[in-house]
């Protein structure tokens, strides 16, 4: 960068490479310092507020709450995945009525809050007790946990159907035609050619959906399920100690981050053949 070329005409030229302490770096270091202060503040708070007796008393509760959260999400995701297949199929169907119904289903469950859906199932279905008893379903809906699973599965099925549909439609038509020309029938084509390619596209959205479900599942605490959030509220109401919320936050963060990295790792593994 020599200065020999300066002359009378004043030109704005691309700035020199940042050296030393440009404004951005000052800002960046400032912000990072702020985060460090904030996070060490929380760590210091937890150390100072540490209470061995409290921990012994409530830690088992947190573990069981975590178990309930994970169980709830796992069952809902699996049931939702099963349910999403016919919905996605109907959505892609050429039959107007079928695809219209599937669209309405997806629109309803994606357009309304999960909390409202959960209330609708838990308290709404509760008011049809006698009818449900007649068909023998009351035993199922009596339990808050089952109601949560019911609502969550229907909800996630709508999202998963859209993920599945998007992924399948992202596979070029030529793949179908190629398979047809080799004499594979439709199911074989779907299973052996389309789905493996579609799942690469779908992996990340599926991962996000699981993460959203884990975070969303916190609302079951409001309908009397002792999940991680429920235990947290219970502990807080017993101890009035704010650290109960901080611990929950840390546990949720750890689960979500682990999942996110796991998805990224799987994605790297299954796309090795695409890397150049």
């Amino acid at each position: 960068m020599s200065a020999t070329a300066t002359d009378a005409t004043k030109v704005d030229r691309p700035p020199a490479l940042p050296r030393g302490w440009p404004r951005q770096r000052v800002l960046g270091y400032g912000l990072v310092c702020l985060w460090i202060v904030f996070l060490t503040g929380i760590a210091a708070y937890l150390v100072l507020a540490w209470n061995g007796e409290l921990f012994r008393k409530y830690a088992p509760g947190y573990v069981s709450g975590l178990g309930v959260t994970l169980l709830l999400v796992a069952i809902s995701i699996v049931l939702g995945a099963i349910l999403s297949v016919p919905i996605a199929y109907a959505r892609m169907s050429k039959n107007q009525v079928l695809s219209g119904l599937a669209y309405a289903y997806v629109y309803f469950f994606r357009g309304t809050p999960l909390l409202a859906q959960t209330f609708l199932v838990y308290y709404g279905v509760g008011s049809f007790r006698s009818q449900l008893e007649m068909v023998g379903l009351w035993g199922f809906f009596r339990e808050a946990f089952n109601c949560a699973i019911f609502a969550f599965s229907l909800n996630t099925a709508a999202y998963q159907a859209e993920i599945l549909r998007g992924a399948i439609q992202s596979v070029p038509r030529g793949q179908w035609e190629g398979a047809a020309s080799l004499g594979l029938h439709k199911l074989q084509t779907m299973w052996k050619i389309i789905l493996p390619q579609a799942l690469i596209v779908a992996l990340r959205p599926y991962g996000n959906e699981i993460i959203l479900m884990i975070k969303g599942s916190a609302i079951v605490a409001i309908i009397t399920v002792y999940d991680l959030m429920g235990i947290t509220k219970l502990t807080y109401s017993r101890t009035f100690d704010f650290q109960s919320y901080v611990w929950a936050a840390i546990i949720y963060l750890i689960i979500v981050e682990t999942l996110r990295h796991a998805v990224e790792w799987i994605e790297r593994r299954i796309t090795i053949h695409l890397q150049r």
């Binding site: 884990i214 975070k215 969303g216 599942s217 916190a218 609302i219 605490a221 959030m229 947290t232 919320y245 929950a248 936050a249 949720y252 963060l253 979500v256 981050e257």
Partner: peptide, 8 residues
């Protein structure tokens, strides 16, 4: 803020 449940 993406990792925490919105409710929390």
């Amino acid at each position: 803020f993406r990792g925490l449940p919105e409710l929390l």
